[in-house]
C-alpha cells in the first residue's frame, strides 16, 4: 500500500502542477516544489526504513538464542551479495550520467544511461530473487524463525522500493523515446535520481547491518552500552 503511494507521490510530483510555466512566480526558498517534496518524502522514508531496521536489529541473534536454524551466519552468502550490492552502487553512477546527459540536451545519452540504470536495478532484483529462493530451499522462510521474518520483511521492502524505482526509470525511458522528456524537463530525471540514490544508500546500511557485521559482537556492544548508561544513572541516583 505504502509503495503505491510513493509511486503516486513521485509521479504527482514528477509531472507536477507547475508543469510548463516558465513565468511562474519564484518559490520562497528558490527550490522547485517537486524537489523539496522529494526531499521531504525521503525524510519520511528514512523513518520508514529506520523502523524496519530497528525491528531487524532487535531480533538480531534471536534465532540463535532459541536454537531455531537456519542461522544467518550459516546461510548468508557475503561474496554473492557484495556483488549485487556493487551492481546497485554502479547503477547510481549510471543515474548520474543519465541526468548529466539530459542537462546537456543529449537525448541519446539519457536513454542509454536510463536503460543501463534500469538494467542494473533489475539485475539487483534478479539477484535478490535468486537469493530469496535459495534461502527458501535451505529452509528459511518468513515463518521459520525471527531471522527469516525480519530478514525477508526488511530486504523485501527494500526490494519493493527498487522495483518502484525501476518502473519509474522505465516510464521516463518510454516518455523520452516518445520525445516527452526535454532538456528543460531535466528535473523529472533529477527527481528519479534522488529517489534512486536514496534507495542505494539504504542498501548500504542494510548490507552493513544484516550481512557484514558478524553475529555475536553486536549484542555485546549493545548490552555494554546499556550497562554503562545504567551505571552512570545509578551513581547519579545514589548521590541524592
Amino acid at each position: 500500500m505504502a509503495t503505491a503511494v510513493e509511486l503516486e507521490r513521485a509521479h504527482g510530483a514528477g509531472h507536477g502542477d507547475d508543469h510548463g510555466h516558465a513565468d511562474h512566480p519564484p518559490t520562497s526558498t528558490g527550490l522547485d516544489h517537486r524537489k523539496l517534496l522529494m526531499w521531504a518524502f525521503l525524510a519520511s522514508d528514512c523513518m520508514f526504513f529506520g523502523s524496519l531496521i530497528a525491528t531487524y536489529m532487535i531480533y538480531r541473534g534471536r534465532a540463535e538464542d532459541l536454537g531455531f536454524a537456519p542461522f544467518p551466519s550459516e546461510i548468508l552468502d557475503i561474496p554473492y551479495t557484495s556483488l549485487s550490492a556493487f551492481v546497485l552502487l554502479m547503477s547510481s553512477l549510471t543515474m548520474v550520467l543519465a541526468l548529466s546527459a539530459i542537462q546537456k540536451g543529449d537525448h541519446r545519452g539519457l536513454r542509454i544511461w536510463l536503460a543501463a540504470t534500469a538494467l542494473l536495478g533489475s539485475i539487483f532484483l534478479g539477484g535478490q530473487y535468486f537469493e530469496f529462493t535459495e534461502f527458501y530451499h535451505e529452509g528459511l522462510s518468513l515463518q521459520t524463525n525471527m531471522f527469516g521474518a525480519s530478514f525477508f520483511v526488511l530486504t523485501g521492502f527494500h526490494g519493493a522500493h527498487v522495483t518502484i524505482g525501476v518502473i519509474w526509470l522505465l516510464t521516463l525511458l518510454f516518455l523520452s523515446l516518445r520525445g516527452g522528456v526535454k532538456q528543460e524537463d531535466s528535473l523529472d530525471v533529477e527527481l528519479a535520481g534522488l529517489y534512486w540514490h536514496f534507495v542505494d544508500i539504504v542498501w548500504i546500511v542494510i548490507f552493513t547491518l544484516v550481512y557484514l557485521i558478524p553475529y555475536e559482537e553486536v549484542s555485546e556492544t549493545q548490552t555494554g552500552a546499556f550497562a554503562l548508561l545504567g551505571g552512570i544513572l545509578r551513581s547519579v541516583a545514589a548521590i541524592f
Binding site: A2, A40, F41, A43, S44, D45, M47, F48, G50, S51, L52, T55, Y59, L142, Q143, M146, A149, S150, V153
Partner: peptide, 25 residues
Amino acid sequence: IVMAFPAITIALALLSFDRFAGTSF
C-alpha cells in the same frame, strides 16, 4: 506527521504479517 507515521505504518505492516503470513513479530 511525516516523521511519525512511518513508525505506525511499519508496526501495522508487521502486525498484518503476523496475522496472515505466519510470522511472529
